[in-house]
Structures are given as C-alpha cells and as structure tokens.
C-alpha cells in the first residue's frame, strides 16, 4: 500500500464518519448530569464563600490582635486587659477541651439571648450563659495545647450566622464586640460575644 492509497482510504473513512453524531440519549444524560452538578455546586459554592469570608475575617483579626499585643504601650498598662482575660480563663482552661456547642442545638434560645445582650437588656447571668466560647474549628475537640491569648475585637453581626446565631438581617453590618481566643499559632480558636457589662467604652 502506498501513501496515496492510504490517504484515499483515510479520506473515505473521514467522509463516512462525517454524519456520525452522538445518540440522543447522550444529550439527555449530559443535561441531567449538568442539572445535578449545578444543584450540588450551588450549595457547595455558597458554603465555601461563607467559610472563606469567616476565615479571612478571623485571620485579619488574629493578625491585628497579634500586632496590637506586640506593640509597646506608652505609660502604665490600662486595667481593661486583665478584666478581659480573667473571665475567659475559667471557660477555657489550658489543655482542656472547650465545650463544642453545636449551632443546631439551641439556636433560637441563643439568638434571643444574643439579642438581649446586644440591646443591653440582659442581666449578667443571662449574658454569661449566652456568651460561652464557641469553637471555630474541629481541632478544639482535643483542647487548646500550650498557651493562648484572648483579645476583644469588633466583628460584623453577620459573622454570627456562621456560628449558628440568628440575627436581625436589617442590622447585619452593625459591629458587635467579641472575645476571641488565639492559639500559639496565631489563629483564632474560639469566640464569644462580649457581655454588656464588660464592653469597652
């Protein structure tokens, strides 16, 4: 067989195959796969975007917290720092697990309590009950290893949604104060809402 003959045969095959199309069921199957993928993709994308926002926010908070702690302070140290750290320690003893409060457990009750705290109506006991530390990652199941620090920060209310707390959507961009536990690695490990009585003026 020479080159010309081979070319002629290949051209014949190409011509024969010109009319070949995928069977109709391939399109049906592909479109069904697309629908299924879009359904799952939309849910995953929404979850990922929210998680990314929260992680980004807390990373920024962690960085600013560490910078603030590292900066030299002029004059005598103001008293609020021990006031913030002291109440946090009993809730998060070193080397012990922080209670893992599932967002699904008592979302409504916590939401109501949070509203009361934020509006200033809450009594101190209610505030203490509703503002226990909420773990921000699965590693806290095993407790905090080594030392940690607590910093008070401001976060938008809608961050609370990711912590399982319902908020008033109209006020989602308003900031609230929170105590954030930072581990040795500089990452935020847990958060709690700052009680009214301990707000920084």
């Amino acid at each position: 067989m020479n080159d010309d003959q081979l070319d002629a045969w290949l051209a014949d095959i190409a011509r024969e195959d010109e009319g070949v199309t995928a069977p109709a069921h391939v399109e049906t199957r592909t479109m069904a796969a697309w629908d299924e993928w879009r359904r799952t993709h939309a849910a995953v994308a929404a979850r990922t975007a929210r998680r990314r926002w929260v992680v980004g926010a807390f990373a920024a908070l962690a960085a600013s917290g560490l910078v603030a702690l590292a900066l030299p302070r002029p004059g005598p140290t103001p008293p609020p720092v021990p006031a913030v750290v002291a109440p946090a320690v009993p809730d998060v003893p070193e080397g012990r697990a922080i209670p893992n409060e599932s967002a699904a457990d008592d979302t409504a009750a916590r939401s109501a309590a949070v509203d009361r705290i934020l509006s200033g109506e809450a009594r101190p006991e209610a505030a203490a009950e509703s503002t226990r530390f909420i773990p921000l990652g699965p590693d806290l199941e095993y407790g905090l290893a080594g030392s940690f620090q607590v910093a008070r920060v401001r976060v938008p209310r809608d961050v609370l949604v990711d912590l399982g707390v319902l908020i008033d959507g109209r006020r989602s961009r308003e900031p609230v104060q929170a105590d954030v536990v930072f581990g040795e690695d500089g990452l935020a490990k847990a958060i709690r809402l700052a009680p009214v009585s301990r707000r920084i003026p």
Binding site: D17, V20, T21, E27, M31, W34
Partner: peptide, 23 residues
C-alpha cells in the same frame, strides 16, 4: 450557570467530540 448556553455548546461540538471518541 446558564443551562441553555451549556446545551448550545453541547449541540455545537458534540459531533466532533463523539466522532473523535468513537474513532
């Protein structure tokens, strides 16, 4: 996320893709 756009792309290119896969 436009389903119709995906369907249009399928119809424009399925022949060549299917033919290639078959060959």
């Amino acid at each position: 996320g436009d389903r119709e756009a995906f369907a249009a792309l399928f119809r424009r290119h399925e022949r060549s893709v299917y033919r290639f896969a078959l060959q």
